[in-house]
């Protein structure tokens, strides 16, 4: 069970190539594109807007509503359109991963809708979705305590690796997938899921690796957001 070389000849602590862009959907209040390897996620934010049914309104704070979905052509075998058990769960964990970073108390009774579409899937889609959604929320001008960066770590064979792709996720001699979302400023973890089995030491090592990966993603997210409004733009106003 020795996994000595990664299938795409990356280093064990090296993420796939990352590309991020902000403001790709004109009619949305905020939007973002996030590509990691062959996985592509787009996110659109609408709101704050009126929330119906009215009984869901909260007079103390605004509500975040996430909607994660995979496009039918995003995977090798056609995915039936519409929500599935899996996408409903991921919508929920995305919501919980983003909520600690947001401050919606300014917008009572309203809702902020986040739509995440996976247009190409090659493992790590929920992480790509969260990273894209965080950028889209910032682009929409929603007050946030921090951005959220997300990446998956895991164990392939006997090795702890960063950012698994689909081939590694399906590694026949066993693989463990651990999606992590981190708020980079204080390193707080807002999403941690685990599919497979790990030892305690391995998990701690994996989380350290995730922190490193998220810092890298944070840099790219920050860069993309600043570029949208003209780089450093020192001569403004």
């Amino acid at each position: 069970m020795v996994y000595s070389k990664r299938v795409d000849s990356r280093k064990f602590d090296q993420p796939r190539e990352i590309e991020a862009r902000v403001g790709i959907i004109k009619r949305a209040d905020g939007s973002a594109y996030f590509k990691i390897g062959k996985t592509i996620a787009i996110a659109a934010v609408y709101g704050p807007r009126e929330l119906y049914p009215a009984f869901k309104q909260n007079p103390e704070t605004g509500i975040l509503r996430c909607n994660y979905d995979m496009m039918s052509f995003s995977v090798t075998e056609r995915k039936k359109p519409g929500p599935t058990r899996r996408s409903v769960e991921i919508s929920l964990v995305t919501e919980n991963a983003l909520l600690p970073a947001l401050d919606l108390s300014l917008f009572p009774n309203t809702v902020i809708d986040v739509f995440i579409q996976i247009i190409q899937a090659d493992a790590g889609t929920r992480c790509a979705g969260i990273s894209a959604a965080a950028m889209a929320l910032a682009d929409a001008g929603i007050p946030m305590k921090d951005l959220v960066s997300s990446i998956s770590v895991g164990k392939v064979g006997d090795k702890i690796v960063l950012d698994l792709n689909k081939e590694e996720e399906d590694y026949e001699e066993g693989s463990t997938d651990i999606p992590v979302a981190i708020m980079p400023r204080n390193g707080e973890i807002s999403l941690l899921q685990l599919d497979g089995d790990v030892e305690k030491e391995e998990l701690l090592q994996a989380l350290k690796l995730a922190k490193k990966g998220c810092d890298e993603i944070y840099k790219i997210q920050r860069q993309a957001l600043k570029e949208r409004y003209g780089g450093s733009a020192q001569d403004e106003l």
Partner: peptide, 13 residues
């Protein structure tokens, strides 16, 4: 940070 720079949420000023 300098005056008139663009910052993102969570950046320490």
């Amino acid at each position: 940070v300098k005056d008139r720079t663009i910052v993102v949420p969570g950046e320490i000023l």
